[in-house]
Simulated assay, not measured.
Amino acid sequence: MAADSQGNDITAVGIPISGSVGIAPITTALLTPAAGKAYDLELAEAFRKLGLQTEDGGHNWTLEADGDPIVFFQDGYSIPSGLANATLVVKLAQYDALTQELLSGAVPDANGYILIDAAGHSTEYRLFTEEIFKNGVIRRRQAGKATITGVVVDQSTRGEVNGVEVTFKIDRSPDLGNKHLGEWLIKPPVDGGTSGS
């Protein structure tokens, strides 16, 4: 459906019904714009998906300028500071070896054992997210450099999911033209094909 006489298109409203988050080693190649557009995309094996998220733990993005703008002597002239606060927060329902790795920056040993330093770790990842909307549209994002800046484990409550809230800090990447993210907005195929238009 096209926009109505007031310029509104109700079919373009994003109502999320599913999605995923994947991480890969920082040396993993990023998707090209053409490859990422495929409606039935299959990620490279290097990407590991973080699994189930809690019902209220979907993708929570912050993409905002940070710091005071640079103001010039001439009235009315300023430019952004160039600083930014780009983060992704998700709440994982699964607690497995990959979640342990996010906590520690290390792979659990054969006993399922790791050492955790609560001060965090500096492991850098490639980050890939996918959000699927009720109207069939898919929004994908990739970050060239993501680090984990916070992990909060829910209080254990009998009969409830013990979620793990993970905060990823997204930095600029030279592989993305010194930007933070690459984003696709993919419409469902109209002809039964494999890629949106």
Rank of each mutant, 00 (worst) to 15 (best):
A2T: 11
Q6A: 14
D9P: 12
D9E: 12
P16L: 01
V21Y: 08
G22D: 07
A24H: 00
I26Y: 05
L30S: 00
A35Q: 07
K37A: 15
Y39E: 10
Y39L: 10
D40P: 10
E42S: 10
A44L: 02
R48W: 04
L52N: 12
G58K: 02
W61E: 04
E64I: 02
A65T: 01
D68Y: 09
P69H: 07
I70N: 05
I70E: 15
V71L: 06
D75F: 08
A84M: 08
V90N: 04
L92R: 01
L98W: 06
Q100G: 15
E101T: 13
P108V: 00
P108F: 06
D109N: 00
A110F: 00
A110I: 02
A118G: 08
E124W: 06
V137G: 12
R139L: 13
R140C: 14
I148T: 01
G150T: 05
V152P: 02
V152H: 07
V152I: 09
S156R: 13
T157W: 05
E160A: 15
V161M: 10
K169G: 04
D171G: 11
D171F: 13
D171I: 11
S173N: 06
P174I: 07
G182W: 11
G182F: 15
E183N: 13
L185E: 13
V190P: 11
T194E: 12
S195K: 09
G196R: 04
G196Q: 01
